[in-house]
Simulated assay, not measured.
Amino acid sequence: MAAPAAGPVPPVPVLRIVAECGRSRARAGELRLPHGSVPCPVFMPVGTRGTAKGLTAAQLAALGCRICLGNTFHLGTRPVSGTGGLRGALGLTLSRPCPELPNPGGDRSCRGFPAGFRRSPRRYRGVTGGSRSVPGLGGPQIWGGAMTQRDVPGFAIGGLSGGEAKAQFWRTVKLSTEQLPRDKPRYLMGVGYATDLVVCVALGCDMFDCVFPTRTARFGSALVPWGSLQLKNQQFAKDFRPIDADCGCPTCQRYSRAYLHALLRSNTAALHLLTLHNIAYQMKLMGSIRDSIVQQRFPEFVREFMDTMYGGRGGPPAWAREALESVGITLA
């Protein structure tokens, strides 16, 4: 008798959840992608044309970066000549087989849309379905229904980095994560400020991207746990300390604030060195967040982060307090 035909093998889920916070919605996981695994929560440096501006792929890898964000539109309109289209352009600019998330670079409305976690770029559109208003937000719509029923690798939340009020920002993120399935990654587009990252991990997001750390570096600003340093300012002219004594990045290990201050006035190498530091800061922050979730001490981490960031400035902003309290984390 012939053996019964084997049925289709179900695909391996993209997200493997490793640990969840016992109080908030924060979770630590692993993205299982065709070109390697990526621990999350994760911040993805923006490499519009395949790599972060001012850094090489090797430098990104050395900083612990496991995934970059590319822009499908830009790669499509300006592909590298002779590389076989978009896929070849990504492979050439990255120079290594690592995951690359292609961003459609289009719709950033307040609705999720499927994100394809592949190196071959694809353009996606928002998927509309049943909707409901966000309570107290005066009518913004979250598209649910058909969207969450689609068999897609993960979901993106867009339209929340355009200057809207923070009270709307966190409530919309929270409502979105409450509707999205637990077993698929949640990518919050265009969010990269440190406080926003910590709060939105608590609200249940897994993936983030933003030009902020690289763009602010090109304006002479270095990210630190207590905010930022504008190294163009004269106060740093004779400051021979590193940007951050606790940072292990090549910039902090070799150069002083005074040196970078002087370099910023005459040499674009300073922008490269600050970009290196700022990406290292983001990678370290996300690694610390993930470790605290795995170790079941995420609420304590959040309190320590907020105390360091805002201890000398009157305490965390009200919106952050409200957002964290909504998921069970109270700040002293």
Rank of each mutant, 00 (worst) to 15 (best):
K184E: 01
M306W: 13
S326K: 00
T251E: 08
P250S: 14
P213A: 10
P317N: 09
T308S: 14
Y281C: 11
L180Y: 02
C40F: 13
D209S: 12
Y255W: 15
G29E: 04
D307F: 14
A26K: 04
G220D: 05
M1D: 02
W143S: 08
V294W: 00
G112K: 01
D107Q: 15
A167K: 05
V9Y: 14
A26N: 05
P4R: 12
C200P: 08
A217H: 04
A194D: 15
P34N: 00
R27V: 08
A28M: 12
M147K: 05
G85V: 02
R16F: 01
S95Y: 07
A318D: 09
G36L: 07
A332T: 12
V327Y: 06
R123Y: 14
M306P: 00
V127A: 03
L276K: 06
T214Q: 05
G312A: 09
S95Q: 02
C21A: 09
R66L: 12
A115E: 03
N267A: 00
V199H: 08
S292V: 15
G314A: 07
Q282R: 13
G163E: 05
T56W: 00
R23E: 09
S161D: 13
R108G: 11
S266D: 01
G129P: 06
P10W: 07
P181F: 07
P11S: 00
G116Q: 15
G159R: 13
I329S: 02
R49W: 04
C21T: 00
V224Q: 14
H277E: 15
A258Q: 02
N71G: 07
P39R: 12
Q253W: 13
